[in-house]
Each structure stands twice: as C-alpha cells, then as structure tokens.
Computed example of a mutant assay.
Amino acid sequence: MTQTVETPPVARAWLGPLLLLLGGMLIGLAPIGLRMGLDTMGPQAIAFWRYTFAAPILFILLIGIERRMPARINRYVIMAGIFFALDIGLWHWGLTLTTVANATFIVNLGNICVGFAAWLFLKDKPKPIWFVAVFVAIAGAAALSLGGETGGKTDIRGDLLALGAACLVAGYMLCSKLARNRLGAMDVIFWLTVVEAGVAAIIVIVSGESFIPATLSGFAAPAFLALAAQVGGQGLIIAGLGRTPAAIAGIIVLIQPVFAAAISWQLFDEPLSGVQGAGAALILFGIWLSQRGMKRRRKIASKPSQETAKTHI
C-alpha cells in the first residue's frame, strides 16, 4: 500500500516582486508626508520621529504575529540601517542646495546601482535583458525628474550630496538583502528601524534642529510616515528582498517617484508634463522588462526528505 505524501507548495515567483512593488508605492508617500510636515518640524527631526514611532509598532507586531522576541541583530542589519539613515539625511541636505529634480534623479540612480553592486560583491550576474531594463528605467527616471519646470538654483555641492545618497541607497539594498538571507523579514525591519532611529538622532543633534515641534499637531506627519513609509513601505521591501534578486529589486522600487508624482498631481495640483508622463511610462515598462530577467523557478517533484528544512517568514 503506497502512502501519499503532500509536498509543500513551491514559492510563488511573483510574490517577491509584488511585495517590492507595493512597498515602493508606500515609500513613494515619504516625500508627500515630509512636505506636509515641514511647516512645524525640520526634515531631519521628521525622519527621527518616523523611525521612533515605528519601532514599538514593529516590536508589537513581531511579538503578536510570531510570538517570540526579536532574533539577535547582525552586522548586515546594522550596516543597512546606517546606510538608510545617512541616505535620508544627505538627500534632505542636498535638497537645500540643488533642485528637487536633480536630487531626485541622482538618488534614484542608487536603485540601479544595486544590480552592479550585487554582481560585484555577491557574484550575482543579471541576465542581458536586465541591462536593457536599466537603460529604459534610467531614461524614464531622467524624464520624470528633469522633464518638469526647473525651479531653484543648481549647486554642484547639492548634486554631490545626492550622489552620495545614491551610493548609500545601493549599500542599504545590498546589506538588507544579505541580512534578509540570514534573518526573518520582521526581525530585519525591526532592527533596521532601531538602528535608523539612533543614527537619525545623531543627525538631528549635528544639524541643530529641534526634536520637538511647536505644537502637538507637528507629530502628525512623522506618525503618518511611521505607519505608511516605515512599517508598510520599508517592511514590504525587506520582505520582498528575501524572494527577489537584488538587481531586479533595485528596478522595481523605482515605482516610488512614479507613485509620488501621481499623488502630488492629485493633492497639490501638480500635473505632469508630457515628458514626465512619458518618463513614468518608461519606468513602468522598465519594471516589467526587468521581470524577464528573473529565472523561472521549476517545479521539481522529488521524494520527501526525512529532514525538515527551517524557513524564515
């Protein structure tokens, strides 16, 4: 008599990119929330409270869902948290010295650099179609960021700060990928947020900004960012990184400026120009094209092993 053994379902190849796409859209709310809170609090202080409000929420979620304490932090989580907090700090600083268009475009290049960093450090060479997707996405990011009205003065110092932020974005994504390979998604996002809050506090002190807004309503913007951008956006991105190659992830999260532009159009009556609309379409096409570079997972029917594998959620 033969016994039928049910094998666990094969991981869905589309789940990782979907999590990254949704996470990128929520992260796209970050500049909107920042813009709405600048009247009552400085940009560095907003970032600090974004992380500080999110940390206890993530801790409660971890305890409630997985019913355990957070796993031990590792060096990759620490490095990723430092990279991300410094990225936000440099980008905000760069915005005061150069145009928003320049700073946004240059920082978005960091997401493209993730694939090259993964190729260099992880020996994870992407497929040839990925390079085509990169070219399309860069062209779209340039059109979206630089195709509108250019207000403000450009300054090479601001552009260099944005370039530094772009490098930090690549470091953040790469280290987050390494951390995600060793820890569960909820452990990584919780410890990332704790590290980011510590680094952001130092940045606030160095910048001379006040930690406390003039009125309690000033906490509304960072509270919104804590839920939408940090818990939702960054959390989904970390979860997606565990299921998606770093090179592909870097292109997918370019949905951020597209979603931010769409929201700004509705909230602030800032319609896109024809060039910007074409740029947004190119980014979406680049995201779709990058999926052609993912290796299709084959469903292999094999005899059940006597050992049970441990998996991270």
Rank of each mutant, 00 (worst) to 15 (best):
Q3V: 15
Q3H: 15
T7S: 14
V10R: 14
A13E: 15
W14S: 11
L15A: 12
L15F: 09
L18W: 09
L19C: 00
L19A: 00
L19F: 02
L20P: 08
L21Y: 01
L21A: 05
G23R: 03
G24H: 00
M25T: 09
M25I: 10
L26K: 09
L26P: 08
I27L: 10
G28I: 02
P31E: 05
G33T: 05
L34E: 03
P43E: 01
A45V: 06
I46H: 06
A47K: 07
F53L: 07
F53V: 09
F53R: 09
I57M: 13
I57D: 04
L58M: 11
L61P: 08
R67E: 08
M69E: 15
R72I: 11
N74W: 08
Y76G: 05
M79Y: 12
M79P: 05
A80Y: 06
G81F: 01
F83D: 08
F84P: 04
F84E: 08
F84Q: 11
D87C: 00
G89S: 14
V100Q: 04
N102E: 01
F105W: 00
I106R: 05
I106C: 01
G110T: 03
G110H: 07
I112D: 10
V114G: 02
V114I: 08
F121W: 12
L122S: 07
L122G: 02
K127F: 14
F131T: 05
F135W: 09
A139T: 11
L144W: 11
L144T: 06
S145G: 05
T150P: 06
K153Q: 13
R157W: 15
G158P: 02
D159F: 03
L160F: 11
L161V: 12
A165H: 00
A166N: 03
V169Q: 07
L174S: 06
C175P: 00
C175K: 02
A179M: 05
N181G: 07
R182W: 14
G184Q: 03
M186C: 07
M186N: 01
D187L: 08
V188M: 08
V188I: 00
F190R: 01
F190L: 07
W191S: 00
A197F: 04
I203N: 08
I205Q: 13
S207P: 13
E209C: 10
S210N: 13
P213S: 09
S217H: 13
A220F: 12
P222K: 04
P222I: 06
P222W: 00
A223E: 06
L225V: 07
L227A: 13
V231M: 06
G233H: 00
Q234F: 10
I237V: 12
I237C: 03
I238F: 00
P245K: 11
A246E: 04
I251E: 01
P257S: 02
A261V: 05
A262Y: 12
W265K: 02
W265Q: 05
E270T: 01
L272E: 07
L272S: 06
L272R: 00
S273R: 04
S273H: 08
V275D: 13
Q276I: 03
Q276W: 10
G279R: 11
L282P: 09
L284H: 00
W288Q: 10
L289C: 01
G293D: 02
G293S: 09
M294H: 10
R297K: 14
R298L: 15
A301C: 12
A301F: 14
A301S: 15
S302K: 07
P304S: 11
S305D: 12
Q306R: 15
Q306F: 15
T308V: 14
T311V: 09
